[in-house]
Design a protein around this nucleic acid. Structure first.
Lengths: 138, 138
DNA sequence: GTCCTTGCAAAAGCTTTGCAAATCC
DNA sequence: GGATTTGCAAAGCTTTTGCAAGGAC
């Protein structure tokens, strides 16, 4: 997700209809760095759109994922979280405050992830995340 | 998990009782490279132990995880899988056959994962897995 | 005998689906 | 107007828990 207009245009070009619910989810996710869960998104948006249903949020997130505008991350065992940044980057999960921080490769000295062929297997993508104590909790 | 005797001894020393159900799970996991889910383990073992309940398998897996004899991995969104190998290694998930392959760092040229401090965050552990097409499916 | 463990069943929680009513274009 | 989308409710799945009966030591 680069900009609101950009995402809207992509929806149109893929033949999806623009509904207030979808626009609300998109607005909420644009630039959002908190990696919210579907439930958290619904809870927050329901304050402004009381009739907004969870399944609509859920369906919208799946749709956005399908057209590559967001990605889901599973750093928690029991639910998925969503990230509007689909550029390759990694995540840091703090065991103390449960916050998920973004880390980009230029900040992450010593990390190098190969993409290509490993032990005969053809690699399409990878998931990497770290656990520990974040800078705010140290 | 290095050997049956080893794991048994660890159970004893930690004060856990040796029950046929626990021994069955341990025997099943020793050297198992298939990364089974809790349900799969139960399904398989139930053939030989018809009264074995799922919750016993589940509790046993949690206990083994607590004493660091197995680890759980979440390469799938909707369930956990278990690996008797607790040495640091990474996983490859095949999108075609859904099989999970082990990869050790010496086989994985180009991969380097830092453990220490990243962008101010203190790192305890990491999870890394690859997705793609495995050597058998290519 | 005592405490831990098992097995059954049900609860919990998130995710997913069915379908009539509403809405976008 | 036609097809998609919404909202509600319920189903699906895996994981987790409660508790009486059973078993290890």
């Amino acid at each position: 997700m680069h900009s609101f207009e950009n995402t809207i245009q992509k929806l149109r070009s893929e033949g999806f209809k623009l509904t207030p619910q979808r626009l609300a989810v998109i607005k909420y996710m644009i630039g959002n760095k908190s990696h919210p869960s579907a439930l958290a998104i619904h809870k927050e948006l329901k304050r402004r759109y009381p009739t907004l249903s969870f399944s609509t949020v859920y369906n919208t997130l799946n749709m956005l994922q399908k057209i590559d505008e967001i990605r889901s991350i599973h750093v928690f065992d029991d639910h998925l979280n969503y990230d509007p940044n689909t550029e390759p980057h990694i995540h840091f999960l703090c065991s103390k405050c449960d916050m998920v921080h973004d880390i980009f490769l230029e900040q992450a000295e010593g990390i190098q992830v190969y993409a290509g062929e490993i032990d005969g297997h053809l690699v399409d993508s990878y998931e990497l995340f770290f656990k520990g104590t974040c800078k705010d909790c140290r």
